[in-house]
Amino acid sequence: MEVRTIKVFTTVDNINLHTQVVDMSMTYGQQFGPTYLDGADVTKIKPHNSHEGKTFYVLPNDDTLRVEAFEYYHTTDPSFLGRYMSALNHTKKWKYPQVNGLTSIKWADNNCYLATALLTLQQIELKFNPPALQDAYYRARAGEAANFCALILAYCNKTVGELGDVRETMSYLFQHANLDSCKRVLNVVCKTCGQQQTTLKGVEAVMYMGTLSYEQFKKGVQIPCTCGKQATKYLVQQESPFVMMSAPPAQYELKHGTFTCASEYTGNYQCGHYKHITSKETLYCIDGALLTKSSEYKGPITDVFYKENSYTTTIK
C-alpha cells in the first residue's frame, strides 16, 4: 500500500517557510505537534488534498525554529505562539472599519479597549522592536488589523473576551517599542525636605499616572512627601515624541487643539466601556464603527496623549 502524501510549508514567522512532505494517514499533531492554519487549530486533523502548498504555523520545537521565533517575536515564552494563534482565530472574524481616516474595530468580545489602543497607536510616533509587531502594525494602518490585535493580546497575556485596560495595554506595548531616546527629568520640591531631581528613561519617561493635564504637570502637581507634608512635583525636561497622561476616570474637559487623542471610560472596574476622542479640525468621538463630532467635550476621561518633541522648564 502506497503512502499518500502532500507537500506543505511549516513556519513560526510566515517569513521562513520549511518544506514538509506530510503523510495523509496521520494527523498534523502526530507529525508536527500543535499546528495552526489561519489561526485555526488543526492539530487533530489529517492532511487533505486542499492543504497542498498551504502554510501551517507550528510551535518552535527545534533550534532553527526557536531562533526564527525569537528573532521575529522577541520572546522565548513557549506558550506565546499558541496564544497568538488562538487569538487570531477570533480577531480574523472582527470587522476593521476605516473611521475618520483611522483603522478602528467594530465592537465584539469586549474589544473596546483594543480599538482605543489601536486608534491611539496610529496617532503617536512609535516604532516597535519585534519585527512581528512592526509588520502587523503597518498592515493594521492599511486596514488589516487582525494579526496586530492578536499579537497585542498575546504580548499582554490576554484572551479574547476578557476586559482590558488601555493604560495597561499601552504599557505592555511600550515595553516592546523603541523608547531608548526618551528621557524625563522631574523635580520634587518640599518646604521641609528641599528639592530632589529624578531622571527617568524609556517607558517611565512617557507615562504618568495622577493627572490628565500635561500643562498642569509642567506647572506642578501636589504629591505627598515622605515627611508627610505636601510637596510639588513638576516637569523639568521632556525628550520624547509623545507623552501619555493618565488618571482614574473623572469628568474632564478636553479643549480642541490642546491634545492629540484621549480615552474615555464609562462604567466601573468590573464592567465598563471605552471610547476614543481625537482632536482634528474639530473633536471626534470614535466608538467602534461609530463616529460623532463636537466642538467641545466633557466626560469621564482616563488617558490623554500629547505630541511632544523637546521641553525644558522655565521655572527657576
Rank of each mutant, 00 (worst) to 15 (best):
I6P: 07
K219V: 12
N110L: 01
H48F: 12
A145C: 12
P97G: 05
T260R: 06
A69K: 05
S246M: 00
V189Q: 09
K201G: 11
S79L: 12
N61Q: 12
C227L: 01
A117D: 03
K218N: 02
L283M: 08
I301T: 01
Q122S: 03
T169E: 00
I105R: 04
S213V: 03
V203P: 15
E52W: 15
Q122P: 04
Q134I: 09
L121Q: 01
L118Y: 06
G228R: 04
Y214N: 02
C227F: 00
R83L: 10
P241E: 11
T198H: 12
V58M: 09
C285M: 10
G210S: 02
S240A: 06
K298V: 14
P34N: 11
N268V: 06
K293W: 09
T302L: 00
P60V: 06
P47L: 04
K218M: 05
K158P: 00
K233W: 11
T198F: 15
T192H: 13
K127V: 09
Y234H: 08
V99Q: 08
S295I: 15
Q175L: 08
C156Q: 06
A250N: 13
S310G: 06
T116A: 15
G82S: 14
D165Y: 03
I277T: 01
L235A: 02
G194N: 05
F305C: 05
S279F: 01
Y36D: 05
F148I: 11
K316W: 12
L200M: 11
C112D: 04
G29H: 11
Y84V: 05
Y36I: 05
L291T: 13
K219N: 11
E162S: 10
T312C: 15
L65W: 07
E296P: 10
T10A: 11
V22N: 04
E52S: 12
E71R: 14
Q197L: 10
I6T: 14
V243G: 01
S263M: 06
Y214S: 01
S79K: 13
L186F: 14
H51D: 12
I6C: 15
I277P: 00
L186Q: 15
P34Y: 08
E253R: 12
Q20D: 14
F128P: 03
G194M: 04
Q195M: 15
L17D: 11
E281L: 02
E239V: 14
T19L: 12
K7F: 13
L121D: 03
G299Q: 02
P241W: 05
N129W: 06
G82D: 11
Y28Q: 05
D77F: 03
A136R: 03
Q195T: 11
F174W: 04
N157C: 10
K191C: 10
A142P: 03
P130V: 10
A145T: 04
Y172E: 11
S50Y: 12
K54A: 15
Q237C: 10
G228Q: 01
A205R: 01
V3A: 13
H276N: 04
H48N: 13
I301L: 05
V42C: 14
S104A: 07
T75D: 07
F174N: 00
C182Y: 07
T55H: 15
M26V: 11
P60N: 07
E308I: 12
K92M: 14
A154P: 00
G161P: 04
T159Y: 14
G53D: 10
D38L: 12
A250W: 05
V12F: 08
K106N: 14
E308S: 09
E281A: 06
T19G: 13
R139H: 09
S181F: 15
V22H: 05
K298N: 08
K54W: 13
K275A: 09
D41R: 08
Y73I: 02
P300N: 13
L118P: 03
G39E: 10
K307F: 08
N309P: 08
E239K: 15
R141G: 09
D109G: 04
F148K: 03
W94S: 04
A231V: 04
T75A: 14
Y297R: 00
T76P: 12
G257Y: 00
H256E: 07
A87P: 00
F128M: 05
H176N: 08
Q238L: 01
E144T: 08
A142S: 13
K92W: 05
Y274C: 00
S263W: 01
Y155P: 01
L235E: 00
V8P: 05
A145W: 06
K293T: 13
M170C: 12
G39N: 11
S25P: 06
M207F: 07
C149R: 03
N49M: 14
Y214G: 01
A132E: 03
A87T: 05
N110M: 03
A145L: 03
V22L: 15
S279A: 11
S181R: 14
Y137Q: 07
K44R: 12
D109T: 04
D13K: 04
S295K: 09
Q175N: 08
I45L: 11
Y265K: 00
T314F: 15
L283A: 00
Q122T: 04
T64L: 13
Q237H: 13
Q134R: 14
V221I: 10
V12R: 10
K191T: 11
E296I: 12
T260A: 09
Y73H: 02
G288R: 00
K255M: 09
Q197T: 11
Y57A: 09
D38Y: 09
